[in-house]
Write a protein that binds this DNA or RNA. Structure first.
Lengths: 230, 230, 230, 230
DNA sequence: AATGAATGAGTATTCATTCAT
DNA sequence: GATGAATGAATACTCATTCAT
């Protein structure tokens, strides 16, 4: 009911909301402009303050045109969350490429996450409001990111790079939570002398976080093999 | 603009919103009923779906009466967040009393946080929506909790119970984020076979989290004295 | 689904659409003004062209107030049809009082029907559009009137005043149809030299119709006893 | 204002709505498909719920193409009413052919009318809604049918087959009204055990109606020659 | 101290019609 | 001849807030 239509991730490319037909090149461009405008408007005003009129004005298209591409306000919101999710994960894996070690990769992933957060404050605000607008899509968002962490952790544990006594799922969610609140506090709330948001995390904070994560994940000499689990 | 009136925490007790006079005993009770109804309604429906009519009906009070106690919908929302914040911190310090060690206390604090979260899902939902409704009060909420963590961490570092290389502020926000997402994922999203939410954290998860925190905070043999800081 | 709420005919008096409570005297008056405005607006513009704003402006009350009394545009429409139905039947039975014979009463009933039609062209237009807006209420309208005719016919047949070979139900619907189209053609479509609608049926037409009905209903010498009936 | 363009009955065959030129054979077919689709859509949804998109989709034709054949939604509606009117009158005269007497013909005409009504419920719904969409075309519809009745009645009166005291015009409208309401009640509202509409009038009803008409029209021994008129 | 009738600004959504291709 | 993307005017309905009682 809540998810308008299915949650399929545009596997075969976007289609017209009215006719169900695949979009022409012109249509594709219009849809993209709507999504970009929506990102800005939702980020600035939040879901409820945002309005279709504001979005279409920002996109420079007619009001009615909106409904050729999205069924409803909720529908574009969900499409936007999924779109941002895809992009943040892309940003994270890009950062991780070429890392020399597991831990290095984990760190790089975080850096990618923070970079994206700083560049797209929308992601943050939009996702938090999703809790009430579209719980399913919110879960999808978190779960997809967490699954990436979790897979990395399991591999690192197998390789002996990460403490085997840690529960990978719990740990993955813990890392997700850390990233979220630290991004919120030190990127989104912070303002420099000119009142402008920082473009990257303060080095002290980043170092502190790295230390924290390194400590938490490092294999412990005493612990032999994950016997605490379950 | 956003904070209706000041954010003072009712230091001298609540006053009539209309006359500014302190409340009589009867008025006090009416105000309390409104806050309790608001907690339920906001938790179930979220800020925007909630309405003054729903709150007053739930409280068994006339619509007009509402404005004798609160200036606006936003005002009762802010009062509610502050109230919940006071109570969750109370729950945490209660849990920490009688802890034998610093680390023990930290763990107990987390347990108190999760207990409160499980018992008051309202806190969680209400706080997440506060981002858009009243950013100031949201910051106050997080900051107050984090300050507690941070003070504890500094003391523990001084006593040598916690790794001195960790930045206390960063670490405190990291812990807050962990608690928030783990509470969300494993308390609020989880459902047992009967579709009912769990009343406490799954032991595996709690153990995994404890291990994670213990690892992260434990003093490292190699590190001598916080020289990595800034 | 179509009938908003139930079709009960305000047996215990109208209630607030919002709270479900019975109306105060002031509320009662407001509701009456809305119904009167609705009769005019629906009659002039038809259901679809009519709008809540037009109705409330005509009634001289605020837009939002409308929804204190009716759940929707359809709801006031249905209430109006039922109200008009009650009144036309009242007008008909009033006309029939004191008729010296069965046939006389039947004729008087028709006269009452036409009088009401001439005074309330709304009835006619509103009812015809009801076919699409609220089929149930339309059926109720016709059925209630027809039942009156039918009961009269049965009694008259028993008394030997009406041809016993006639099927009372079919005959009742035939009479209803006659009345409707003759009212439409000779009252609602007709205009005098000044372009004004007539306030009563042209005597030629009324006489023609009376002759037609008298012929149709009069007991036939040849027919012995309603053996044609089902 | 209401009649889009003139009400001429396509006397010289349909023309392009855009160029005003007569249609090619291909164009003719497209126009016909549009009218057929319109009959279905208007009948199922009524005028206002119907939309050009629904009609063109049903016709398997591009949206823009519609305006090559009709100026507006109202224009196709009017064309449709006129088309149905032509066909119902055709159906009626077909039925009347070969009737042995005037009264027989009258009865056969009714049978034809009901047959058409049962087969084209569209006629009924579309016509009733026409009251608000296009009053002129509605009048044309009724008037054309009534004129047929009236002519027949005059001839029958001249031949002494019908009571000369009846006013032919009034009687014709009375018959029209009877047919309409009886068709509505016993064809369109009726459903058999399987919920399907009947394909013809119930014999009891038809017999009852025949008796009613026969009574009404039969020459009365007492009445000499229409002296009651005016 | 309490009430609830009245208000009207604000918003999502629909659809007939146009026009560039 | 045919198409369908784009348009924006129009409308039902909600709800925080006021105020007379």
């Amino acid at each position: 009911m809540s998810l308008s239509g299915e949650l399929v991730d545009d596997a075969q490319g976007p289609v017209s909301s009215a006719t169900g037909r695949p979009l022409t090149k012109r249509g594709e461009a219009t849809r993209r402009r709507l999504l970009e405008a929506a990102e800005l408007v939702f980020a600035e005003q939040g879901y409820h303050e945002a309005s279709i009129v504001k979005i279409t004005e920002r996109a420079g298209i007619g009001l009615g045109t909106f409904y050729l591409y999205f069924d409803s306000k909720q529908a574009i919101f969900e499409a936007l969350v999924l779109d941002l999710n895809r992009r943040v994960r892309h940003s994270m894996s890009e950062s991780m490429e070429g890392a020399s070690s597991r831990l290095e990769a984990e760190r790089a992933g975080f850096a990618g996450f923070f970079r994206f957060t700083a560049e797209h404050p929308a992601l943050y605000r939009v996702v938090r409001e999703a809790e009430f607008v579209s719980p399913e899509v919110l879960r999808l968002h978190y779960t997809r990111i967490v699954e990436g962490y979790e897979a990395g952790l399991r591999a690192a544990q197998a390789a002996g790079d990460v403490d085997r006594a840690l529960d990978p799922q719990t740990t993955a969610w813990a890392l997700m939570g850390m990233g979220e609140l630290i991004g919120m506090r030190f990127l989104l709330w912070e303002r420099d002398a000119d009142g402008r948001p920082p473009s990257q995390l303060d080095p002290v904070v980043f170092a502190g976080m790295t230390r924290f994560i390194d400590n938490a994940l490092a294999p412990r000499p005493g612990a032999t093999h994950g016997e605490e689990q379950a």
